[in-house]
Amino acid sequence: MRLGSLIETKVGLNTRELKKMSNVTYYLKKFADNDLLLGYRPNSSKVSCNDEFVTAGDIVINSTTNEATIVSPLNEGKILTQSSIKIIIRDTQQLDLWYLCYLFNGSQFIKKQIYSLVEGTVLRRITQSNIQDLDIPVISLEEQKRIGESYRIFMVRKRLRIHREEEEQKAIFNFLEKKITYVKKGNKDEY
């Protein structure tokens, strides 16, 4: 089924429009990456009405990396730039947002289509029309939710693994730094 029959797309503001605004925070890739790992699933399927700002539960695709994320409440209200495309699902009884997120980030079926559609020689960007032209697998909403939930849980577990590795690295480096300081002070004991 053609994705364009299930969604609408909105591109973020261009540089000229962004310059007109002051005291705003842009929805950058680092925020999108963090949101994806948070695994936010909104309780209700509200549709974001504001084109300029992101709302918790919005699906946003980075047009450069072709990665999708779901905006968490932590980043609600940030400004969408032209390097991002907001996806608005017309009927949430036909398409699950985490399933769609998985399709963009993990499905080889979609990645092959995107690669053949994206434009540019050096920096290959996906466009609104590219997204609308994607052919997605038609499966039941129940099956979509199972796939989407599995992907969401995988991302949450990935965040926890990353956090655990960072904490382990800090602990080991602190231990090693203490040993260097201990030996530097003239203590020659083995450790």
Rank of each mutant, 00 (worst) to 15 (best):
R161C: 07
K112Q: 07
G120E: 04
Q108R: 12
V183D: 09
E165M: 08
K10E: 09
I7L: 05
Q94N: 13
N62Q: 05
K19G: 01
V71K: 15
E76H: 06
D33S: 05
L36H: 10
D33L: 10
W98D: 04
N187D: 15
L123H: 11
L176R: 10
K158D: 03
R125K: 11
T81Q: 14
I85E: 01
T92L: 06
C101L: 06
S140E: 05
K10T: 12
I131T: 03
N23I: 01
T25K: 12
R90D: 09
I85C: 05
R152N: 09
S45W: 06
T15N: 15
V71M: 10
V138N: 14
E166L: 00
Q144Y: 08
S129K: 11
R164C: 02
S63Q: 07
L6S: 09
I61Y: 06
E166Q: 00
Y182G: 10
I114S: 04
N187L: 09
G186Y: 13
F53W: 13
K179A: 01
I88M: 08
P137I: 02
L3W: 07
G106R: 14
V183L: 13
F104E: 01
K112S: 02
Q128T: 08
N75M: 02
Q94K: 15
D91R: 15
K170L: 00
E8L: 07
Y115E: 14
D51R: 15
R90A: 03
K20V: 00
V122G: 13
G120P: 14
N43L: 12
I131Y: 03
K179I: 03
P73D: 00
V156N: 07
G186C: 12
K178P: 06
I131Q: 05
N50M: 10
L100E: 03
S48N: 15
Q128M: 04
S140V: 06
Q94V: 06
K185A: 11
Q113C: 09
P42N: 12
V183I: 09
T121P: 11
T55Y: 15
I110S: 04
R90C: 10
L160M: 13
S48L: 03
S48I: 01
E143T: 14
I147T: 04
F31M: 08
D58Q: 11
S22D: 14
L117F: 13
S48W: 05
D33E: 10
D96F: 08
L123A: 09
Y191T: 08
R161D: 02
S150V: 03
E76L: 02
I139F: 07
C49M: 12
V183K: 15
L123F: 10
P73I: 01
L74F: 14
H163D: 09
S63L: 04
S72K: 14
K86A: 01
T92S: 15
R41I: 10
F154D: 02
